[in-house]
Design a binder for these strands. Structure first.
Length: 839
DNA sequence: AGCACGCCGACT
DNA sequence: GTCGGCGTGCTC
């Protein structure tokens, strides 16, 4: 693989170079060398988008990664067909970042490009069909069959048609042979048409014609002219209400969007008449999809605690590039961020702020928008491709100097970052696990900051062990705030004993007496309740009471999850679904019951226990569409929901003073997860959920239901002594070689044949054991799920020394090993998936 | 990843 | 006989 990293001539503008190494969005571990035609040599720059032919017919958009003068030995390089950018879409810093990411996360640079570049910036190529100009129907020596005739007829009508058109014309799916035969008969030509995918948004706008807008008498005359035509009159009046043409003539210049002007009841024909009579004129305007908003510039004052924390952070930045801000929920971290962002922006640098996906739709964004207005870009995962391109270009041209976004916003084309903030840095959703690159946005962000010589601020109420460890080691600066803002008090914890209540027969629909009492008390005072249930490994399923049958996925070794609202059983791994059967497929019994306790079941139980309460539910099912999440939040905020049941999502961004009780339905479920991070996650989750209780005047109550209330993790959470918890957990982490003491690399071996998968996994194990380094190789073991999508899988775990250099050496050897194994005929169709720092 | 080429089953 | 299934090999 051609290495760009550390290559000295990399940034230099090259003049006499004949070849370019192009990054293409394909999962092949190398760049591709193309010839630079003399005609476009002056336009070739690192990071520019180019069009190249790849394979026999494919035309792809690539990025220039490197230019040089070494002709490839083994093949003839194809020419670059075109350069798309005058100013490169990608800057050299980004390419360094891509190269780093590919090597650190053991993936191909093309995969990084695929993740980084919005697909709207890639051109799409579509095969088009055209009549061959040299073809003469009469003189053709070859007879045409009726299908071929039909295609030619269509081509005589319109100049070019697509494959899809052909399929429609003939009503057949397989048109390729027909077209092939037509090409052979020299009747048609097939060519690739390349099109830019991004289309700017164009609005049709209307304004008064100049003569009328500039003269009151002209306008009066118009009114007289349309007297007795109420529809035209109403449109004109509405326009004048929105646009004071005489006070602010420049507003008439901009006009009004047609859709806004024509509301319900207004007829388009009246408007047409107005245009025809020269009163209105219509014109097209390119607008941006993201909307404009001017900042309100509220001057927010920091409390003395916040001010002190800010000074401390800045102090650490003098000597350290990364600072961990450990501030309890409600300590006002956002205000500190805002001050810091303002300062960096004023110094002329750019700022990136990362948020976990589910936190992005909420208050914090509108809060920031109010302060930063149109210089702030938002990069959301639910954005359409056109919207992504607009944010990308906004950063590129300097319109956005500050971006708030999800993990993929680390790929935006910043050229002078001064600060990256990673809020809720402990959130596991910062790690991407499928597809490659399987990067962690927090870790990648610190690397990105390093390339920019920028600072990184990690914020959390419950830091990840990795970050906390780094802070303890003095690698990161550490700033702690342990007061809630405005003296809101910390919540009061209660442990409700499930086993004891069951013995005493106090358990009703899986709720303890204490839980019911606390909920009832809140309802009596018209306060709100949040109930949390962990989703991971805790989904409801259908079981036969007579024979114990459960629905299994046909492609994966897992039980199907029951989804009540659709009466379906679904596989969470491959998406397979089937209707719930009427009777047991194994024994015919009709006694099928729901097992497990999903949010749906809890909601149902609670509405039986508290029939007068208004219930709401927030989970994947209810928030699947773009606005579902916001709608539930709005309803809850407006007090239209008394009890909200939900998964992880409810721990984010709910800041409503009326929540006084938070219930954790099954605390044990959070604790007993078979993972070395279980304790850490449990502490984080419980603390985060509890933080939603009583954020204003009333003291919050947190009820945790558990079969094992004696477990000392609860005690630690309740005490809130993070350091002590950390210290004890770390003893085990050290003893059993787990992060942050070591680095983990997980390799999954997959094949549809169990035997081959097993053999391949063992072969890999042997090879890895052979390479000398300070490391431990575990496995291979059958995956926790032995089969996914009909692929059997084995997992190996490698524990590496924290030392960065030996890691890099290992990863390089690993790449060689995998390439070698892959080339053996027996393992040709085996898939290997490398996950660095798995979550 | 696509996409072509190539060699075996079920249909007009 | 053909259509069309997906194994496997290649992409500068």
């Amino acid at each position: 693989m051609e290495s760009l990293f550390g290559d000295q001539d990399f940034f230099e503008k090259q003049s006499g170079n004949n070849f370019a190494d192009v990054i293409l969005p394909v999962p092949i571990p190398r760049m591709f060398t193309y010839k630079i035609p003399v005609a476009i040599r002056s336009q070739i720059q690192i990071g520019a988008r180019v069009i190249v032919q790849f394979g026999k017919k494919k035309v792809l958009t690539g990025i220039i990664g490197k230019v040089h003068n070494k002709p490839p030995q083994a093949y003839e390089a194809k020419p670059i067909l075109d350069v798309l950018d005058i100013q490169p879409s990608v800057n050299p810093l980004q390419i360094r970042f891509w190269v780093w990411m590919a090597s650190y996360y053991c993936c191909h640079i093309g995969e990084v490009m695929h993740a980084a570049l919005p697909s709207g910036l890639r051109l799409s190529s579509e095969s088009k069909i055209q009549l061959n100009p040299n073809f003469d129907r009469e003189e053709s020596k070859y007879p045409l069959d009726f299908r071929e005739e039909k295609i030619l007829e269509a081509l005589e009508k319109s100049e070019e048609i697509t494959y899809e058109d052909c399929e429609k014309i003939l009503g057949v799916k397989t048109i390729h042979p027909i077209l092939k035969s037509l090409v052979a008969k020299e009747a048609i030509l097939i060519f690739e048409k390349v099109q830019e995918k991004y289309t700017p948004k164009v609005e049709t706008r209307l304004r008064l014609t100049k003569d009328i807008a500039e003269s009151k008498t002209a306008l009066e005359a118009v009114f007289e002219g349309i007297a007795g035509k109420p529809k035209q009159e109403s449109i004109l009046l509405k326009y004048l209400r929105d646009v004071p043409v005489f006070q602010k003539p420049q507003l008439n210049e901009k006009g009004v969007d047609k859709a806004t002007l024509l509301e319900e009841g207004d007829s388009e024909s009246s408007l047409k008449t107005l245009i025809k009579n020269g009163i209105f004129e219509s014109f097209k305007l390119v607008v941006n999809r993201l909307g404009e908003e001017e900042p309100e510039k509220e001057a927010s004052e920091l409390s003395s605690t916040q001010q002190a924390a800010l000074e401390e952070i800045k102090g650490h930045f003098e000597s350290k590039s990364t600072v961990l801000l450990h501030g309890v929920t409600g300590s006002g971290k956002t205000e500190i961020y805002i001050k810091l962002i303002q300062e960096v922006l004023e110094s002329g640098s750019q700022v990136l702020m990362l948020l976990p996906e589910i936190a992005l739709t909420i208050q914090i964004v509108s809060r920031l928008k109010k302060v930063f207005g149109s210089q702030m870009g938002i990069y959301h995962s639910k954005y359409s491709d056109n919207e992504r391109v607009e944010v990308w270009n906004g950063v590129l041209c300097g319109r956005f100097s500050f971006v708030v976004g999800v993990r993929s916003s680390i790929f935006l084309p910043f050229d002078s970052l001064g600060l990256i903030i990673v809020d809720e840095e402990h959130e596991p959703s910062y790690k991407q696990f499928d597809p490659a690159p399987r990067f962690h946005a927090r870790d990648a962000a610190t690397m990105l900051a390093y390339f920019h010589q920028a600072k990184t601020l990690l914020g959390s109420a419950t830091p990840s062990f990795e970050s906390y460890f780094n802070a303890n080691q003095g690698k990161y600066g550490y700033v702690e705030i342990n007061h809630r803002f405005g003296d809101a008090s910390m919540p009061e914890f209660h442990l409700a004993n499930l086993s004891a209540d069951r013995k005493k027969n106090l358990l009703k629909l899986d709720s303890t007496r204490l839980m019911r009492e606390k909920i009832q008390a809140a309802l009596d005072k018209q306060e709100q309740v949040l109930i949390f249930q962990n989703r991971r490994g805790y989904s409801p399923y259908i079981q036969c009471e007579d024979c114990g049958w459960t629905g299994q996925c046909v492609q994966c070794d897992v039980s199907l999850t029951y989804h009540q609202f659709a009466e379906e059983m679904r596989c969470h791994y491959c998406g397979y679904k089937e209707k719930v059967p009427q009777s047991c497929p194994a024994c015919g019994s009709t006694q099928l019951t729901t097992m497990g306790m999903g949010t749906e079941r809890i909601e149902e139980s609670l509405s039986l226990l508290f029939p007068e309460a208004r219930m709401g539910r927030m989970d994947l099912d209810t928030t699947r569409n773009k606005y579902g999440y916001q709608r539930i939040l709005d309803e809850f905020g407006a007090g239209q929901i008394d009890i909200l049941v939900g998964t992880q999502m409810i721990t984010k961004g709910l800041d409503f003073g009326k929540v006084t009780v938070v219930g954790i339905w099954d605390g044990d479920r959070i604790l007993n997860f078979p993972d070395f991070r279980a304790g850490e996650r449990a502490y984080q989750q419980i603390t985060q959920v509890a933080g939603r209780a009583g954020r204003r005047e009333a003291k919050g109550q947190v009820v945790i239901q558990s079969r094992d209330p004696e477990n000392d993790l609860y005690e630690k959470v309740i005490k809130g002594d993070y350091f002590e918890f950390f210290r004890q957990e770390m003893i085990d982490r050290k003893k059993f070689y787990y992060p942050p003491y070591v680095k983990l690399v997980k390799i999954t071996t997959r094949h549809s044949d169990f035997k081959i998968a097993e053999k391949a996994a063992h072969a890999l194990h042997r090879e890895m054991a052979n390479i000398a380094a300070k490391k431990i190789v575990l496995g291979p073991e059958k995956g926790i799920i032995a089969r996914i999508k009909n692929q059997y899988q084995f997992e190996s775990l490698i524990k590496l020394d924290r030392n960065g250099n030996s890691q890099a050496v290992f990863k390089e050897s690993l790449a060689k090993i995998l390439e070698d194994l892959q080339s053996r005929p027996e393992f040709r169709s085996v898939r290997w998936i490398v996950d660095v720092d798995p979550s």
